[in-house]
Amino acid sequence: MQPVDSHLFLIVGAALFSIGLAVVLLKRHAIVVLMGIELMLNAVNINLVAFSQYDPDRLQGQMLALFVMVVAAAESAVALAIVLQVYRHFRTAQLDELNELKQ
């Protein structure tokens, strides 16, 4: 199998991280902001895996990527539950319209 040039992984990781950052900064919908965070975590995972293939005995990068994945799953579950409660309270999920803590 032809090994891929590792610079490609790093550049794709950088591009995905930038796209995720732009999504987080730009969008005003709570769920889309969560999607941007997922994109950034995936970019980090690509970098970890790209460097981990030169360490086949210990695979520290892949272990860290695995833990990042689990923590991201937990984070998205809790954040979506909070978004759901916010939606029940305010009847909207647009972040610009959430402007009070108490009714």
Partner: peptide
């Protein structure tokens, strides 16, 4: 991309978790 970076377990985990 994970498969191409010789991380087969992580690719399957990515498919299942994400």
């Amino acid at each position: 991309l994970f498969v191409l970076a010789s991380a087969d377990f992580l690719a399957i985990a990515q498919l299942m978790i994400y």
